[in-house]
Nucleic acid binder design. Sequence first.
DNA 1: GTCTATACAGCGATAGAC
DNA 2: GTCTATCGCTGTATAGAC
Lengths: 200, 200
Amino acid sequence: MNTKEKILAEGLKLFNKDGVENVTTRHIASEIGISQGNLHYHFPNKNEIILALFDGLMEQLMAARRHNSAEVFRKEEVLESMKQNFLIMQSYRFLFKDNEVVWRRLPAIRKKMIALLDQKKLEIKSIIAEYVRHGIFREDISQVQIDFLADQFIFTISSWLTASEYLGVGNKASYFAVYTFRQWLPYLTQDEMKKWEEML
Amino acid sequence: MNTKEKILAEGLKLFNKDGVENVTTRHIASEIGISQGNLHYHFPNKNEIILALFDGLMEQLMAARRHNSAEVFRKEEVLESMKQNFLIMQSYRFLFKDNEVVWRRLPAIRKKMIALLDQKKLEIKSIIAEYVRHGIFREDISQVQIDFLADQFIFTISSWLTASEYLGVGNKASYFAVYTFRQWLPYLTQDEMKKWEEML
DNA sequence: GTCTATACAGCGATAGAC
DNA sequence: GTCTATCGCTGTATAGAC
């Protein structure tokens, strides 16, 4: 690991632990045993470290996407991919838990994050539409409710790291992956509901 | 409004607007036209201002509670009381949006907030139990799912101010009061579902 | 209660030597 | 690439006069 990578790794660790507003370039530097001047050689300022970490998050999320279109709608696949995404988010949790602080410093991150979520919303809508087509969802679900389900989904994936503090379940990625699925249960046909419950 | 109240009002305004980490005692003082020294006469430090504001939130939430037990389970009452609670939360939004920052500075607030939510969970469970007793909920809802609904409720009320940023609906208290109710819809009997939808 | 003045610490960032 | 040294600024908090 070169110095630049060390800075990013330690920065991530400290931001997650102590919060963006409490971590200084001095802390990061001293923790990995380099001088503050050296750190500033690699990153001109703190914001650039945060930005690089955010790029790391985006990269990992992109890398985790599945594209084998045949399998992409299978519930087991969706759940598994959800868990993986949640684990990635968890490792960059300061970007979500301290999102307001980060956004105030770097409005560009806010824009990208919202764009990402907008895209996720489209993806989930197409998955739900697929389930409706295959008769997995109840017949009496209106489009309004489908849209509401998509909103619920965005709500969950954007805020589960915040909510986990209140719910006292810890940052359990798999708990909230299951949680996301459980929100859909009452919309399923009775038959499918049983199958899904067995999976969860 | 005396000086102490002015400090609190301006503090709330600035914390909501610029974030706890960016607002200084100097800002608050100069904004209301007093000296920083004077401010520190009334509040020894920034944390005490935050603490006093948190007490204000708790006080307002307590004052908004209904106790006329006959009406307390009517869905219209519950929705209305939800909206009022959400409006109060919205006026103290920095305590929720920047909850991590606040909690790091004042761990005592974290404890009280979690205790508050735990109590809300009990309240909502008793409301749901009442609905189950009256046959408003579907018969086939298991206890696990009831507990899940309560968790969903806590998730929503704790994190809606965070999520509203991602969902792009603004901090609309009434939107999320309705949102909370809509989560229950698929658990209702068909008959009740229609009545509820008319209300929302 | 309110003011001015000031002490003090910590942060971000840069300069210049090696 | 890495170091030491240092500047300028901002934030919290206190002292002492009115």
